[in-house]
């Protein structure tokens, strides 16, 4: 059984705000959608691997958007892919978060002028929480991006989503 059916010998009680509890739970288990697009995806996989160990922040890849909390847009978003990403985003249950990883996802990157097939920034399709610059960003940069996202989640409130 769970914790609650045990009797606490010294009557321990933890008092916390619901916001704090929920935010702590959410930021400690940001499950990401297992999804990679281009060379940034290689860095994202390196971040997930043992050396950088994304898992220590509670980030594990899920293979369906219905079980995911976050999506890391790791690479060049073509117009063809953008329609798919929009659908994946819509399938993620709230609350959901977006990390835009690398120059391509941020603003089109090297394809900004002649990339007839490239969406110049994923924020034209879905709202982005954290932008990670780099081409591609090193795993440390992606970790920093995740910490920024966690900081953002920590300041959320159930009553109103803060910016």
């Amino acid at each position: 059984m769970g914790l609650l059916d045990k009797e606490f010998s010294d009557g321990n009680v933890v008092i916390a705000k619901v916001d704090d509890l929920f935010n702590w739970a959410r930021l400690s288990s940001v499950w990401q959608l297992g999804f990679g697009l281009a060379c940034c995806a290689i860095e994202m996989m390196a971040t997930s691997a043992s050396h950088y160990d994304f898992d220590r922040f509670g980030v594990i890849p899920r293979n369906t958007p219905r079980q995911a909390d976050a999506i890391i847009i790791s690479g060049t978003v073509t117009l063809k892919m953008a329609t798919r990403i929009k659908r994946l985003y819509e399938q993620i249950p709230d609350p959901k978060y977006i990390i835009s990883m690398g120059s391509c996802a941020n603003c089109g990157g090297p394809y900004w002028e002649h990339g007839y097939h490239v969406l110049k920034g994923i924020d034209r399709v879905i709202p982005v929480d954290v932008y990670v610059p780099g081409c591609p960003p090193r795993p440390e940069a992606l970790l920093e991006g995740l910490l920024k996202l966690q900081e953002k989640i920590r300041n959320e409130s159930l009553r109103k989503k803060t910016v």
Partner: peptide
């Protein structure tokens, strides 16, 4: 070739 302004509601040029 000239790139279109929009594709499925998404703005294409930078």
């Amino acid at each position: 070739y000239k790139n279109p302004e929009f594709y499925q509601g998404m703005k294409v040029p930078y």
